[in-house]
Design a protein around this nucleic acid. Structure first.
Lengths: 199, 199
DNA sequence: ACCTGAACACCGTTCAAGT
DNA sequence: ACCTGAACACCGTTCAAGT
């Protein structure tokens, strides 16, 4: 008879995210999510499959929250993207670490990856190797953001972590510009960045 | 009256590790750990505090399983340590990702960190900045190993991941040798590694 | 000192039932 | 089509009791 649904998948995921942000992953209970939506726990199963599916949806939400920049110089785009990733980790410190534990071939992840790859190729990276470089760079950035969010560096000052992040970006820039991954003999400007220094 | 204990903390942690390796973190149940030791669940609480403490112990076990090398050229030591970290991740793929989610100031973590720092200083890194460089390098290596262990790159071949890891090490080496973090004017051999190329 | 048995509040998930 | 109520097997943890 087409009763109008009172909740939908996005709402369930948003409720789970809000609970995780406020009280950690342990607070994400089918019962708690349902209560937040004013519904019984079993009502969730029509929209979410099971709890693992709910967590997957929450992680994917994080990924799609970080759209890759499309304007500006190639490394500027990468630096802004990395910064946005870091901010997402700060917004959702309890969920973010799950990002490193799931296959990196979801739709949202692919979109980010493509943005990184085209920036890298603009920076002179051999298109045949840009995917490999992308894995390296994104793993380093995700690893840092996850560590920071989860409190692995909680005994360091925010200012120190900002410096660490800047140094990380500098390492990545130098690596790309070193020409290790460019096509033979086509390494553009293998010494030093063309723009202003990072720090 | 000093009854001789039938189990101890190390045994509980080892049992938890074995269960996690075989069936994932979800298989690490107080009941399952106890059953594996031939004891009731409540017997564990004398040795382990609670379940979070058990997981902490399991993670710390992983760290102490990777002793930093003390012989050989500085970068060779770092490369072997990174390889050992990667192997630890492969041995305990379900527990390893937790390593990035816990404060990096446990005894075992400190020992590894000190080994990395002295290698870096031998490589010319300013002692005042070696701790910062260590955070960057270890985060990149842990992030890669955790990603690989958790299956984030499961759609890539083992051979591809070996190449990724080699490229990661090359990036780290180039960064240290670039002289960004050496004391002013004391950058030793800022161009190219002294030994054979990595790949 | 070390382990057990019984009990508690909670968890994810199922199934059949309601509208 | 969407939600509910009752039920099930399991979870971590407590407390008092046993030896």
């Amino acid at each position: 008879m087409g009763r109008t649904a009172r909740i939908d998948r996005d709402g369930v995921i948003a409720a789970g995210l809000a609970l995780a942000d406020a009280g950690g992953l342990a607070a994400v209970t089918m019962a708690a999510v349902a209560a937040r939506l004013g519904v019984t726990p079993m009502a969730l199963y029509r929209h979410v499959g099971d709890k693992a599916d709910l967590l997957d949806g929450m992680v994917e939400h994080l990924v799609t929250e970080v759209p890759p920049p499309t304007t500006g110089p190639w490394f500027d785009r990468l630096a802004r993207l990395a910064g946005a990733v870091r901010e997402s980790a700060r917004r959702h410190p309890n969920v973010f670490p799950l990002l490193l534990q799931r296959p990196a071939n979801t739709p949202g992840a692919r979109q980010v990856r493509d943005g990184v790859c085209s920036a890298l190729e603009e920076g002179g990276v051999d298109p045949a190797r840009s995917a490999q470089v992308e894995r390296l760079l994104s793993t380093a950035v995700l690893g840092f953001a996850a560590s920071e969010a989860a409190g692995r560096f909680s005994h360091h000052s925010p200012r120190q972590l900002d410096q660490d992040f800047a140094l990380l970006l500098e390492m990545l820039l130098r690596f790309v510009e070193s020409g290790v991954t460019t096509v033979d003999g086509a390494a553009p400007d293998p010494r030093g960045p063309p723009g202003a220094p990072l720090r």
